[in-house]
């Protein structure tokens, strides 16, 4: 079994130092990887990112993260990314990584994603420049996710996971006001996941949403926003991929323990 721990929307600030560390220190006993689904900070300041870094450094399991909209608010996403990478995290945006733990190869493709809405109730790439840019930005994030998942196909992963901040499906938004769904996720992410294939999709962002959902193609989706799971993290135990399945077990095993694209 591959044990995937995940949480998003931890929104750490200067008063949060040490609050999650005791729970994270239990990870080597219960998980093979920790996924962080964005909104790790409140305003995206380097000071807040250093608090996050202190919570996740040297945990004894690999840490893979995407940023969220809060992590962009201070306009320093590259600095936030660098601080988290210095703490040992793999921070993904349209990228894939394969981390190993206990002989398992865990492939993660990640993007922040963006909004736009869901089929039949979504924004279109039409009209004013800012509206076209909004949809184009969301499409580029989804394209990056699809490409990253496709790259994982050839890297003999035991499991492949799509990690986003915004939601790929409306299922996991249940509890949020319907009127704000287009700001919470995009069907383009689910389309990318179903096109490229994945064993699990993990996201955050929707604090009042629901944990469980599924894409139209049958990929399980979990909203791990901390207010939703009501824990420091949740753990999902997945069966290793059948070597006969076409969407991840073929290809050449890389000699590196951890490879970032």
């Amino acid at each position: 079994m591959t044990r995937v721990a995940a949480v998003g929307d931890i929104h750490l600030g200067p008063d949060s130092r040490g609050t999650l560390r005791p729970a994270f220190d239990t990870l080597p006993d219960c998980a093979d990887v920790l996924l962080l689904a964005g909104d790790l900070t409140r305003h995206g300041t380097p000071e807040e990112a250093r608090v996050v870094a202190g919570e996740i450094a040297d945990l004894g399991v690999p840490v893979v993260a995407v940023l969220g909209n809060h992590d962009h608010h201070d306009d320093h996403p590259d600095e936030i990314t660098a601080i988290l990478r210095d703490a040992g995290a793999h921070v993904l945006e349209g990228e894939a990584t394969v981390v190993t733990h206990g002989g398992l190869r865990i492939g993660v493709a990640g993007t922040k994603g963006f909004g736009g809405g869901f089929v039949g109730r979504c924004a279109g790439e039409f009209g004013e420049p800012v509206m076209r840019e909004f949809v184009r930005y969301s499409r580029h994030r989804a394209d990056g996710l699809r490409t990253a998942l496709e790259e994982l196909r050839g890297r003999e992963c035991d499991v492949r996971i799509a990690l986003t901040h915004f939601a790929p499906v409306p299922d996991t938004l249940a509890g949020e006001p319907l009127e704000i769904y287009p700001f919470l996720g995009s069907y383009l992410l689910a389309e990318a996941i179903d096109t490229a294939g994945a064993d699990l999709a993990v996201h955050g962002h929707a604090h009042a949403g629901t944990e469980h959902g599924m894409t139209g193609g049958g990929v399980r989706v979990r909203n791990v926003a901390q207010p939703v799971i009501e824990r420091a993290f949740h753990v999902y135990s997945l069966n290793p991929r059948d070597p006969g399945e076409g969407s991840g077990a073929t290809g050449t095993r890389s000699p590196e323990d951890t490879v970032r694209q």
Partner: peptide, 16 residues
């Protein structure tokens, strides 16, 4: 308003 719960989970969800 509720303050976020920072305890670890007591069991995993099995995804067969």
């Amino acid at each position: 308003l509720v303050v976020a719960e920072n305890a670890p989970p007591d069991h995993p969800e099995e995804l067969p």
